[in-house]
């Protein structure tokens, strides 16, 4: 059976992991390469790296660490942040990343999705969508959640799929950081609206929250940051917990 994926997300600034990541035996807890390796060993199914600086001067640093991460991990990983052109994608893929994620740039230029999919295949294109419930509607926000757009989340998900997105990474701004669970209702709707995999993001605080999202929605994967980084939920423990509810998960080789 296809397994539900557990995906730690790492925010990177100038080549360094930001937000405290608390792993034991780490020489350098800010090193994306060491952390990526540690997460792979723990049984993460995939990793997402978001470059939150993403300025032009930073691109070189980005490519350097992407290359190093690719050299040490043998699980899929996605790189996002500041990707605006097919050339940006090409550089990241050439360094060994498997997928890229685009957010604001896809909203500003939806055909970027198609262009990337044509050249690298849909499997490479993750469209990240930040959504917030406002004026009784689910609206898409860009620029790290600062700017409201005219897009309705459900419609934008559908459009992204039609344009060639291979996966949708849906982050609920309302739930993000609150640690009170994922946006179940919205995820339920979106996973019924699109036929590509949806990665649930925003709100994970406990193991139960992960179980809920897989029991009540058709999400293919769940992404979280702080609960993994702060060791609140160790990945092997989470997977053992999900198994109790017959949620299919993968165990890493010890």
């Amino acid at each position: 059976m296809l397994k539900k994926r557990i995906i730690p997300c790492l925010d990177i600034k100038a080549g360094r992991v930001v937000k405290g990541v608390q792993f034991e035996n780490l020489k350098d807890s800010g090193d994306p390469v060491e952390l990526a390796y540690q997460y792979m060993q723990e049984g993460a199914d995939e990793l997402v790296f978001l470059d939150i600086t993403a300025t032009q001067d930073n691109r070189k640093t980005l490519l350097e660490w992407v290359k190093k991460v690719a050299q040490v991990i043998q699980i899929p990983f996605t790189v996002g942040g500041g990707i605006r052109t097919v050339q940006d994608v090409e550089a990241i893929i050439d360094c060994g990343a498997d997928k890229i994620s685009i957010n604001s740039s896809a909203v500003q230029n939806p055909y970027l999705i198609t262009e990337i999919a044509k050249q690298f295949g849909s499997q490479c294109v993750v469209v990240a969508i930040d959504t917030k419930y406002i004026h009784e509607k689910n609206k898409v926000f860009i620029a790290g959640g600062r700017i409201e757009t005219n897009l309705i989340t459900e419609e934008w998900c559908k459009t992204a799929q039609e344009l060639g997105a291979g996966e949708i990474l849906l982050t609920s701004i309302d739930h993000d950081g609150a640690k009170k669970g994922f946006a179940l209702d919205l995820l339920k709707t979106i996973t019924q609206t699109v036929s590509i995999p949806v990665i649930a993001s925003g709100g994970a605080g406990t193991k139960e929250h992960f179980a809920e999202v897989f029991i009540h929605t058709k999400a293919s994967a769940a992404l979280a940051a702080s609960v993994f980084h702060n060791k609140i939920i160790p990945i092997p423990e989470l997977k053992a917990f999900l198994s109790q509810y017959s949620i299919p998960v993968r165990y890493a080789k010890n």
Binding site: M1, L2, K3, K4, R5, D45, S122, Q123, G166, E167, S195, I196, P197, K218, S220, A221, R250
Partner: peptide
């Protein structure tokens, strides 16, 4: 066949 999410993405036994 379009009976589930496509592409088949992820870890499978």
């Amino acid at each position: 066949p379009p009976e589930d999410i496509i592409p088949h993405t992820g870890w499978n036994e």
